[in-house]
Design a protein around this nucleic acid. Structure first.
Lengths: 240, 240
DNA sequence: ATCTTTCCCACCTAGGTGTGAACC
DNA sequence: ATGGTTCACACCTAGGTGGGAAAG
């Protein structure tokens, strides 16, 4: 066997990526997590995680009118993007950061007379996937160093989706959640201490086309990719 | 501590990513690897890795004229991109795949009278970084499933580069190498069995501007991002 | 003078937006 | 008739090309 002199001049941390950062199926059934802190253990006095939602003001301005998120067959990102600042982690410990999206209630909605109203019982929900942040696992120090972004998560209404996108029902209400798990390996996820966070202002209704024009305008005004639809300056379209 | 019901409906494999897939500095000094196969051990009869260079014909057509790779301050990809098909791995074992680029000789070159000639002794080399494939570590099965691409590697001549790009000397000759390490953790890299591969047709001279117009033409004809410079059809430029 | 490097540019690829008509 | 969904599209962001003038 030839033996070349290799000099690894610097090596990075284990991360998640590919498959759009999404999940495969070897742990495809709901599993309970162990509580985050077990008083008897020595391991858990080392951190006290705090999580702050980025662009809270922007989320609030959407939430005020009733946030809508478009879902498409080919997959659509959320806007605003879900980003958090994390602090209070154990710098040396490894963490996996995840998010998922759960149904808020058992209702189907409709937008009638400029208002969202209950329109019956919810359709059956598809099993929800966990979106593991592609940098996972990383040390507490690395997570706290920069803003953690989940903007690559995609939503779809295609129940046959093979990309690993999050499948939602149109005209149903959802709540994103954020999970912080202290572990160095995905395989240990189900048995590792964790903490979960919910930001009420991130609640939204999934739609295939925007219902509330105030929401449409907020998207256009704030999403750089929709700049082409702005009245002012940059865009080429004029309001009539 | 609130304990939300989490259902991880599928979890993916540990990967590398971010920092452009590049290295940080906690293992920043050359280290010897253990030989790939140790006869006394049980662990090593499980695989017999084979590696095949993708687009070998394209590499050959460049190599025939003397491949040149542009290096810039802001970082430049290689073209053709380095891609391999891997086979003969242990499906269940985990591997980390890496590449690096080493100086071929101790010479500085110049392009004179349409030929590359030695023009003196080489300039001092910067320490070379290992580029760890962002999907690392993954199982043999996953690596063999699809073509493994290192196209995101970037070359630079900026000795102060902070991105983790590979720093090369202009007008010097280089040889990319490919390394296959059987391990599930970067931290174990220096002590894990490995195998290295070299493709002679990937040898190149680093330049800040193309010297051989035949190389320029091959790049334009084959790199999709240079389509704008093609004479034929798609492009808008006309040769004069 | 000659050779090499730098910078901005037009021109691409790749892919994220809401639109509005068509479809169901 | 109504309401929800789909699709091609123009218009963006983001970033990978070599050219050519200017600089070193």
């Amino acid at each position: 066997m030839p033996s070349l002199p290799i000099h690894p001049a610097g090596l990075s941390q284990p991360k998640f990526s590919q498959l759009n950062g999404f999940a495969s199926d070897f742990l495809s059934h709901p599993q309970p997590f162990r509580p985050y802190k077990v008083p008897e253990s020595d391991d858990d006095v080392k951190d006290d995680p705090k999580v702050e939602l980025e662009s809270k003001d922007l989320w609030d301005s959407f939430h005020k009118f009733g946030t809508e998120m478009v879902i498409t067959k080919s997959g659509r990102r959320m806007f605003p993007p879900f980003k958090v600042k994390v602090s209070g982690l154990d710098k040396k410990a490894k963490y996996i950061l995840l998010m998922d999206i759960i149904a808020v209630d058992d209702c189907r909605y409709k937008f009638h007379n400029s208002k969202w109203m209950v329109a019956g019982k919810a359709d059956p929900e598809m099993p929800k996937r966990m979106y593991i942040h592609p940098d996972s696992p990383s040390t507490g120090e690395q997570w706290m160093q920069k803003i953690v972004s989940f903007h690559k998560l995609k939503l779809t209404n295609n129940i046959s989706d093979k990309h690993g996108f999050t499948i939602l029902n149109s005209m149903h209400k959802y709540q994103p959640r954020f999970h912080l798990v202290r572990t160095d390996d995905v395989l240990k996820l189900p048995y590792s201490p964790f903490k979960s966070f919910i930001f009420k202002e991130m609640e939204f209704i999934a739609v295939t086309a925007y219902q509330n024009e105030k929401i449409t305008q907020l998207k256009i005004d704030n999403n750089p990719f929709a700049k082409g639809f702005r009245d002012t300056g940059g865009g080429k379209r004029e309001k009539k």
